[in-house]
Design a protein around this nucleic acid. Structure first.
Length: 561
DNA sequence: AAAATTAACAACCGCCAGAAA
DNA sequence: CTTTCTGGCGGTTGTTAATTT
């Protein structure tokens, strides 16, 4: 739009520092010694000055612009103005369908790497792309549509698979061409892997396209709308720390993470990097460390359908720190993820001995005091747990009947019942994901390479073969995570989210035996009934309309002998 | 026709990394 | 080696036009 430029400003074209350039429309500025630097919309007069300057001096040295041209703008602002509006060969106007398609594809591959994406779109700026995408996110979200069209997902999947293959055969030296050339980082592997089920698993008839980015974008597309999803960068910051700590993260996830068990510091790192809290509570009856208000609010958040499926709780959204997910928010949880994903996360998140029960929460980067408090408390509890579990690690087990967990379950069940409509398109069925301690072993005690028969719960449609089809080996899965984590912390985060969340699958629900083990027979039975109900009353919802930002984080890392 | 909502855009801010001093 | 400067990037906010109610 050209609305911001008042064409009458042309009359003000002047290089006189005392001209209206210096203060016209000044909506507050900063001083830099030479005067007040103007902020706000650029006038065409300022544009002319800047263009003239660049013509004479070339790009760069933006801080000198003011000195040489008398333009009362900071160098940063000048650079931005030049890059986004004045530089030649800029393509203006709406994105063409082709460009839109490209953006979608690129975003599927790169995530919020606007500058890189812009490099693929001649004449377009990162800002343009970013704005377009954010708008798209809002629009799609509002419409309840998936962010990525299915073809993009499939494409990403194929690339992902090729990339994995390539990495596997070349030792990672030569990844997918795109990955290497364009700095494509790890595609959203875990999600892509799920997408793979689309064509394999009957239980995933139309796995909606979603990726780590998707999830993230759901959360970061706009703080206005997704304020309770951790923005990528902040998560990356947290993750970076852990990645640093895991410099030996060479695929041996277990060893890498187990090393984290060495100290409170590492525990802290885990907490921060994974956005986890470790509210281990020796007293299961007081398991939920969140204040009731937070819980409730978190519920509203996690239920936080922007379409306000629970309007009564809506107002809490703005009052609460982001991402305080209650353990009890069942009604809004998605459906359980398929076993491989669970195991993937299991593989990655090796709860060190003594970590004990871990509640994974998603910590907002914009921690409020409350959240900080919770984190602090979690750290303390974590520390406590490490100490205590050292004494009793051999006997520390997680069982369906475990009091602590059952308390959670009870809460969940109550919540579930309270929600009344557990299978509504946006209040999907729920499950707890249990991250067991020893990776190769699922909660049910089954070795990881022996994929659990998820059909146990769906009773009909879940098969285990796809697991083997997609992940040929444990090494491969580890490899994926290694690659993922090494180059795409946000994807890791997403995987973390994924792992600690539940997966919404159109028309179908997958439940792992791990979950079953946790829930116990009665609950599982109820769950199955509910699933059946879901099937019959399905409205064809998918991830696209699923509230990722809702993802509760009731992930329990339990110890296993 | 007015108000409300949504979309599109522009610009700023904070953070970070690399280069230069 | 440390500090400072600069440019770049991504997230966020604010404004306005367009559309809907």
């Amino acid at each position: 739009m050209s609305r911001t430029i008042n064409e009458s400003d042309d009359s003000m074209l002047s290089k006189d520092p005392k001209s209206p350039l210096g203060d016209e429309g000044n909506s507050g500025g900063i001083t830099n010694g030479a005067g007040v630097l103007k902020k706000g919309p650029w006038t065409s007069a300022e544009d002319a000055i800047l263009m003239d300057y660049v013509k004479k001096h070339g790009e760069g040295n933006w801080n000198a612009v003011q000195k040489h041209s008398g333009l009362y703008r900071c160098g940063k602002s000048c650079r931005l103005r030049w890059a986004n509006h004045l530089r030649p060969n800029l393509k203006k106007g709406a994105f063409t369908p082709e460009e839109e398609r490209l953006i979608i594809e690129l975003h599927a591959k790169m995530g919020n790497k606007w500058a890189r994406m812009a490099a693929h779109l001649p004449g377009r700026t990162d800002n343009e792309i970013k704005n377009y995408w954010n708008t798209r996110v809002k629009r799609r979200h509002r419409a309840g549509l998936p962010l990525y069209p299915p073809e993009v997902c499939l494409q990403a999947l194929h690339k992902s698979q090729r990339s994995q293959t390539s990495c596997g055969t070349s030792g990672g030296g030569q990844g997918h061409l795109d990955l290497m050339q364009h700095g494509y980082e790890i595609p959203s592997v875990p999600f892509d892997s799920l997408k793979a089920y689309q064509g394999i698993l009957p239980c995933v008839p139309e796995f909606p396209d979603v990726s780590a980015d998707d999830m993230l974008m759901k959360g970061i597309g706009s703080s206005q709308y997704y304020s309770f999803m951790p923005p990528t960068t902040h998560c990356q910051k947290r993750l970076r720390e852990s990645i640093d700590a895991l410099s030996d993260f060479d695929g041996s996830i277990t060893s890498g993470l187990q090393s984290l068990n060495q100290s409170q510091n590492t525990c802290d790192k885990i907490v921060r990097s994974f956005g986890l809290t470790f509210p281990y509570d020796p007293d299961p009856t007081a398991k939920n460390p969140l204040p009731s208000g937070a819980t409730q609010g978190g519920h509203s958040l996690s239920n936080g359908n922007f379409s306000a499926s629970k309007p009564d709780l809506g107002p809490l959204k703005s009052e609460l720190p982001s991402l305080q997910y209650p353990e009890t928010d069942l009604g809004s949880w998605g459906t359980p993820s398929p076993p491989p994903l669970l195991e993937l996360v299991d593989t990655f998140i090796q709860s060190p001995p003594g970590t004990g029960t871990v509640q994974i929460d998603c910590v907002s980067p914009h921690n409020s005091g409350l959240l900080d408090e919770l984190i602090h408390e979690s750290k303390m509890l974590c520390s406590t747990k490490i100490q205590s579990s050292d004494k009793s690690s051999s006997s520390s087990t997680f069982a369906p009947g475990d009091a602590a967990d059952s308390s959670t379950l009870n809460m969940c069940e109550r919540e579930w019942n309270a929600n009344g409509d557990p299978v509504s398109p946006q209040g999907h069925s729920t499950a707890l994901l249990i991250f067991n301690d020893s990776t190769p072993i699922s909660v049910s005690g089954r070795p990881a390479d022996e994929h659990p028969p998820a059909e146990t719960f769906t009773g009909s449609s879940v098969k285990s073969e796809p697991v083997d089809h997609f992940f040929t080996s444990e090494e491969e899965r580890k490899k994926i995570f290694t690659d993922l984590n090494a180059s795409r912390p946000d994807a890791l985060l997403a995987s973390d989210w994924f792992g600690c969340s539940t997966l919404c699958v159109k028309d179908q629900v997958i439940m792992t035996d791990a979950i079953a083990a946790l829930l116990g027979d009665d609950f599982s039975s109820n769950y199955k009934d509910m699933v059946a109900e879901t099937h019959t009353s399905s409205q064809g919802w998918g991830l696209g309309s699923c509230e990722w930002s809702n993802m509760p984080a009731v992930c329990q890392m339990s110890e296993l002998p």
